[in-house]
């Protein structure tokens, strides 16, 4: 039913989404934590920067990233020096671009849940001799579990569906940077509607089921903080 090319695109897309979500959770947690707890004046600026991908046309983000990751660019040139490989049109480039593009989808739910948890559980933990890191791991993050589930699913689903940025940054190299959404576009362009239907229907079903699972889990989760 699926051609070899389509299977390759599917596999690549799943890899990209998984890696991106992992990176996003690692990068997004400290940013969200800082946004939730800081009293700094920089907070508003950082919040706006994080939210930029929500309003920015993907091609704009893709364009700037393409320039930055080119062999002469500010990221691409040191990358070439250290790794002996060009960054643009690589899987790594896709991960970097996807991370930036999906950042608000991870940071915002995390920030909301960290704000809901508040500082009280952390203060309580410190009265029980827990260091701040310990308090975060053993108290704050379990209490923010809903936020983590929402962030993971939104980050994953949003990466699955991105098109503009990956096209700009990755090109459309089969097996290397050609993701599912680009495959669908190619099928439609060449009037292969049957294949486009299969992939589109699959993505639609997948997205719906994931959201259904998330909402079910969120509703049944025993811990309600706010």
């Amino acid at each position: 039913m699926l051609s070899y090319d389509d299977l390759q695109a599917l596999w690549l897309t799943l890899q990209l989404a998984t890696v991106t979500v992992c990176v996003l959770l690692i990068v997004g947690t400290p940013i969200a934590w800082w946004l939730a707890h800081s009293r700094s004046k920089l907070q508003t600026i950082v919040e706006a920067v994080v939210a930029l991908p929500l309003v920015l046309p993907p091609t704009v983000l893709g364009f700037y990233l393409l320039i930055a990751m080119s062999p002469q660019g500010i990221i691409g040139s040191p990358w070439l020096q250290f790794t002996d490989a060009t960054l643009s049109f690589s899987f790594t480039a896709l991960v970097i671009a996807s991370t930036l593009y999906s950042l608000p989808f991870v940071v915002q739910p995390l920030q909301t849940s960290f704000e809901a948890v508040g500082s009280m559980p952390l203060e309580t933990a410190s009265m029980l001799r827990a260091s701040p890191v310990d308090a975060f791991i053993s108290v704050a993050s379990p209490l923010a579990l809903r936020g983590y589930i929402t962030a993971t699913v939104l980050g994953f689903a949003h990466t699955l569906g991105e098109f503009g940025v990956v096209l700009m940054v990755g090109g459309s190299i089969p097996g290397k940077t050609k993701v599912l959404s680009i495959s669908i576009y190619d099928h439609v362009e060449t009037l292969e509607y049957a294949q486009a239907h299969t992939l589109s229907g699959g993505l639609l079903l997948f997205s719906f089921i994931t959201l259904l699972i998330v909402y079910t889990i969120n509703r049944r989760l025993p811990i309600r903080v706010a």
Binding site: M120, E123, T124, M127, I223, V225
Partner: peptide, 29 residues
């Protein structure tokens, strides 16, 4: 730092950890 002062506190709304059992709450410290 607060965690190194050897001070215990009972908060106004108790601030029990909702994700832990009574046993785990008390054993936290």
């Amino acid at each position: 730092e607060a965690e190194n002062r050897g001070v215990g506190m009972v908060f106004q709304d108790y601030a029990l950890f909702p994700h832990l059992t009574v046993m785990q709450n008390v054993a936290f410290g």
